[in-house]
Every structure is written in C-alpha cells, then in structure tokens.
Simulated scan of single mutants.
Amino acid sequence: MVLLTTKFVQRASLFVSFGGLVTTIITTFLPLWKTMNSDLNEMENWYEGLWHMCIYTEEVGIHCKAFESFLALPLDTLASRVLMCISIATGFLGVAAAFFGLQGVEIGTGRERMKRTLLILGGVFIVVSGITTLAPVSLMAYIMVVKFWDENLPDVMPRWEYGEAMFSAWFAGLLLVVGGAFLFVAVCMGDHEAKLQSKILSRNQEQRSRTRHYRKTEII
C-alpha cells in the first residue's frame, strides 16, 4: 500500500507509543488499582492504588490518604510502584530518542546511521517500558485472584477486586509494546528502501558509463 511508507510507520509508531506513555503516567497515580465493597455496608467502597488509599461514602464522598511509609508497603505494591516508575522513565527516553530519529526532523539531517541508531534505541526503550507496565499489573492481578479464592479466609471477609486502573495499565503496556515493535518494522523498511535506492543509483551509474563508452567509440 502507498500509505505504508517508512515515514508513515515511524510517525504512527511514535504516536501509539506516546499514547501508551501518557496512559501509563495517568494510570500510575490513579487510586483505582484495587476496589473492595463490603456486603455488610454497601454504601461504602474502598479503593487502593500505588500511592493512595481512598474510601467513598454517600455522606462524605471520596476521601483519600497517601501511604505514609515506603517500607511498610506490601511487596506487590512496592514492586509495582518501582516498575511503573521505571516504565515512565524508559518510555520517556524511548519517545525522545525515536522523535529525533524520525525522517523529516531537522536535527541530525544527513546522518542516516545516527537516526537509525536512535530509532532502534527508542524501540528498545519503549518495549522495555511496555514490559515494565504489563509486569506489575499482571503480578497484582495474579495475587488478587489467589487471595480472592483463598479457602482459609472466611466468606464474610471482603476481598479486593480489579479496579479500572488495572485495565488501563494493560492497555497502556500493549500500546507501548506495539509502538516499540513497529519502530523496528520502520527501521527494516528504511533499510530496504536504502538498498533499493543504492541499486537504482548503481544501475544509473552503469548506464551512464556505458553511454559514455559508446559515445567515445562513435567519436573514434
């Protein structure tokens, strides 16, 4: 297809990656990773994120409180917080590197090898960002399922369930992985176009040399 040019794939991949990065940043600070509702008091809902715990009641509304101690956090919450921060950092580096490696960006014009290296580096960072987004949310989901079906806990005790932020994190991680993977596709497309251009140039040079040779023989 005509639309699937190297330039288009580069920009589409960067757009998808940037969307995944923005979604990751928003999801990291949302207090909606876990939700819990007690059957004894249906008017009260609990929400927990990586940084805050919130309670919602119809009388007061929503009230949030940040976790006071970093070391007192549960292991899954602590690991998820660290991994999400790594995801934001690597995603930002990947998007920045890929932006400067795009065709048409004036910085580094004429240095195709450097631009290619920036695109590859950006793709690696973005894929790592996607993996470090998918890993913590999948870990928390697994632990939540194990605790939800734990037979040692009484049935009356409320249990944590999936919050909206977990689905948002899965979506963000998928966007980052897809965006980073298509940056590699764009690099391969650029290499293929460069080979075709070099072949065309070599053929043109051969034709020019042949025509010059023929002209010389005609003059002689």
Results as ranks from 00 to 15, higher is better:
130 G>L: 01
210 R>A: 14
125 F>D: 00
90 T>I: 03
109 T>C: 09
84 M>I: 00
51 W>F: 15
179 G>D: 04
47 Y>C: 01
50 L>K: 00
150 D>H: 08
75 L>V: 09
5 T>N: 10
59 E>D: 13
176 L>C: 06
61 G>M: 06
129 S>D: 01
65 K>I: 07
124 V>L: 11
206 E>D: 10
104 G>H: 09
28 T>C: 08
91 G>F: 01
146 V>P: 04
34 K>H: 13
152 N>P: 03
151 E>F: 08
196 L>W: 06
19 G>K: 05
207 Q>T: 10
133 T>N: 02
218 E>Y: 13
108 G>I: 05
140 M>A: 05
119 L>K: 08
204 N>A: 13
2 V>Y: 14
177 V>K: 00
165 A>E: 02
84 M>Y: 08
134 L>A: 06
70 F>M: 12
145 V>G: 03
179 G>H: 03
174 L>F: 12
23 T>Y: 03
80 S>C: 06
80 S>R: 00
49 G>S: 02
192 H>S: 08
167 F>K: 08
122 G>L: 03
117 T>S: 14
22 V>N: 07
78 L>V: 01
128 V>S: 06
29 F>N: 07
25 I>A: 12
101 G>S: 07
131 I>Q: 00
138 S>V: 06
71 L>R: 12
155 D>L: 15
167 F>N: 07
69 S>G: 02
84 M>D: 05
20 G>H: 02
107 I>D: 09
201 L>G: 07
29 F>M: 06
180 G>W: 00
126 I>T: 09
160 W>K: 06
206 E>S: 13
121 L>D: 01
152 N>S: 14
61 G>A: 05
68 E>V: 12
109 T>A: 14
144 M>Q: 10
23 T>P: 04
203 R>H: 11
219 I>C: 10
40 L>N: 07
134 L>D: 03
9 V>W: 06
112 E>Q: 14
86 I>R: 01
187 V>G: 03
52 H>V: 04
188 C>K: 15
220 I>V: 15
77 T>I: 13
140 M>D: 06
203 R>T: 09
136 P>E: 02
217 T>E: 15
164 E>C: 13
81 R>W: 04
126 I>S: 01
150 D>K: 10
178 V>G: 00
133 T>D: 02
176 L>F: 00
63 H>Q: 14
73 L>P: 04
48 E>I: 01
195 K>I: 10
17 S>C: 04
64 C>R: 03
169 A>T: 02
116 R>L: 14
41 N>S: 14
9 V>T: 09
2 V>C: 15
48 E>S: 11
135 A>H: 00
69 S>C: 04
158 P>K: 05
113 R>V: 14
140 M>Q: 08
149 W>S: 11
89 A>N: 04
18 F>K: 01
138 S>F: 05
120 I>V: 15
40 L>P: 00
186 A>E: 06
191 D>G: 14
68 E>Y: 08
173 G>C: 02
14 L>D: 01
120 I>F: 10
64 C>F: 03
44 E>W: 10
66 A>K: 08
127 V>F: 02
33 W>A: 01
35 T>R: 11
52 H>W: 09
214 Y>K: 13
156 V>K: 11
3 L>G: 11
186 A>V: 03
37 N>W: 09
